[in-house]
Design a protein around this nucleic acid. Structure first.
Lengths: 136, 136
DNA sequence: CAGTATCCCCATGGATACTG
DNA sequence: CAGTATCCATGGGGATACTG
């Protein structure tokens, strides 16, 4: 979530551009927004895991291999801020915090799965293309 | 395209993990691969632009506001390496190079549009959620 | 258990200059 | 026109230590 991602290029866009171009650039910015939200290192993985159901902090930490405590916290806070994930603190000791996809988050899950499907279907193609390219 | 993204966590994954976990981690890695390919700053924008048809280098440079010459080159090379974009050099002077989505690239376009649709549909929700969160 | 707080590395990517 | 080469600032994110 870069702080400067709200309008990365808009300020420099020529004001004389056509309405069509304006729509295009606007679209570009939307894509950028979504990618900044979802394209960071851990968000999609967390969303996919929460797509299976409610999870506690430590559960996520253990089911997502490689994520650090810090990055899990940062990622969850970002997703919570954007309304994709809800955070429920149970006032018990030891503390218990549940994370869950919101309705909005679940709508993204559909798209995440579409991306995932694409990945699983074409990873071999990409690997082959890379090998071919590197061979040259 | 980080050089170390091929297997970001695999080497540290406990070899005793179950087959289910193996499948899960594999899926995680696939997602990571796709995001590394498509989740960088310019790839999706370039793919979206090439989705409209063949484009020359300078055309891309001018229709994608904010992209530097260097990053456009880097992005196009990456997409070419992964077999998503084809690069055709015409041996004329001044040089002319055409970029185009491959068949594989066009299959990704579908998913890109799905992501774009989601963005356009829910950007207002996200903006509102952010405002609410920041107000607290 | 579920975080914060620090320190710090290094990859991403922008700016600029040069070239076949 | 379509790049390559170089330098350098920013910040994403890992490791570690500490806490209510």
């Amino acid at each position: 979530m870069p702080a400067n991602s709200a309008d990365p290029v808009g300020g420099r866009v020529d004001v004389r551009m056509s309405a069509v171009m304006a729509a295009r650039d606007d679209t570009t910015c939307r894509v950028r927004d979504i990618l900044d939200r979802v394209g960071d290192k851990w968000s999609l993985t967390v969303i996919a895991e929460l797509g299976k159901g409610v999870r506690r902090f430590t559960e996520l930490k253990h089911t997502i291999p490689g994520v650090s405590q810090r990055m899990l916290t940062v990622t969850l806070r970002g997703l919570e801020r954007d309304g994709l994930v809800s955070r429920t603190v149970h006032p018990v000791v030891p503390p218990r915090v549940d994370y869950e996809l919101t309705t909005l988050g679940r709508t993204l899950l559909e798209t995440v799965w579409a991306l995932l499907d694409w990945a699983l279907q074409h990873v071999d193609d990409i690997d082959k293309a890379r090998a071919d390219y590197d061979a040259r």
